[in-house]
C-alpha cells in the first residue's frame, strides 16, 4: 500500500473527471475528515485517514481491501474504473441517463443501451461524454459513455446504440472474483 505517484494521480483524476467534471474537487476536499487515495496490489482505494491508520498495522500480504475500491491500473498503466466506484460517481455525476424499466435488465446483463430503452438523458450531453446510468426510480445502475449527443439521440432509429456500456451493478454477481 502506497500513495499514488504523480502520473498515476493524473491518470486517475482524468478518468474520474470524465464523469463528475469539476465535482472531483468535492471528492478530494471533504468536510467530514481527510480522505485519500491509496494504491494496493494495483488497485486504487479511496478511504479516510482514520481507516488508513488502522490498515497500516496489517501486513501487506494479508491486506485484502480497504475503504472503497475505485478501479485498477492495467499493466500498461492505464486506469480502469470499477463498478465499486459507482457510490461516489453517482451523487456527483454531471451527465445522466435514465433507462426504461424494460431495458433495465438488458443493461444489467452487460449490454449497451439502445434508443428504445432510453428514458431520459441530460440536456446537452456531448458525444463520448462519460455518463452515469440510472433506473427510472433513480437507482444508479452503472456508467458508460454516450454514443450520441442529446441532439442526435432525438433523430436516430430505435435500435441504435445511444450509450456504450462500461460497468453495471450486475458485475457484483458476474465478476465477483475480479472486483478487487
Amino acid at each position: 500500500m502506497r500513495p499514488l505517484t504523480e502520473e498515476e494521480t493524473r491518470a486517475l483524476f482524468e478518468k474520474l473527471a470524465r464523469y463528475v467534471g469539476e465535482n472531483l474537487q468535492l471528492l478530494v476536499d471533504r468536510p467530514d475528515g481527510a480522505y485519500c487515495f491509496r494504491l494496493h496490489k494495483d488497485r486504487v482505494y479511496y478511504l479516510s485517514e482514520r481507516i488508513l491508520k488502522l490498515a497500516t498495522n496489517i501486513p501487506r500480504e494479508n491486506l485484502v481491501a480497504l475503504g472503497t475500491c475505485f478501479g485498477k491500473f492495467t499493466k500498461t498503466q492505464k486506469f480502469r474504473l470499477h463498478i465499486t466506484a459507482l457510490d461516489y460517481l453517482a451523487p456527483y455525476a454531471k451527465y445522466k441517463v435514465w433507462v426504461k424499466p424494460g431495458a433495465e435488465q438488458s443493461f444489467l446483463y452487460g449490454n449497451h443501451i439502445l434508443k428504445s430503452g432510453l428514458g431520459r438523458i441530460t440536456e446537452s450531453t456531448a458525444q463520448y461524454q462519460g455518463v452515469v446510468v440510472y433506473s427510472m426510480a433513480d437507482v444508479p445502475l452503472g456508467f458508460g459513455v454516450a454514443a450520441k449527443s442529446t441532439q442526435e439521440c432525438r433523430k436516430v432509429d430505435p435500435m441504435a446504440i445511444v450509450v456504450f456500456h462500461q460497468a453495471d451493478i450486475g458485475e457484483y454477481i458476474r465478476h465477483e472474483e475480479t472486483l478487487t
Binding site: L54, I58, C69, I169, E176, L179
Partner: peptide
Amino acid sequence: NEERLRSVVGNLHRLGVTNTVVSHC
C-alpha cells in the same frame, strides 16, 4: 480463507460500506 473473502469484498462494496478494512490473517 482468502477465497471466501472475495464475496466479503463484493458484498461490502455492493452495500456501500466504506469503513471497513478486509484482511485474511
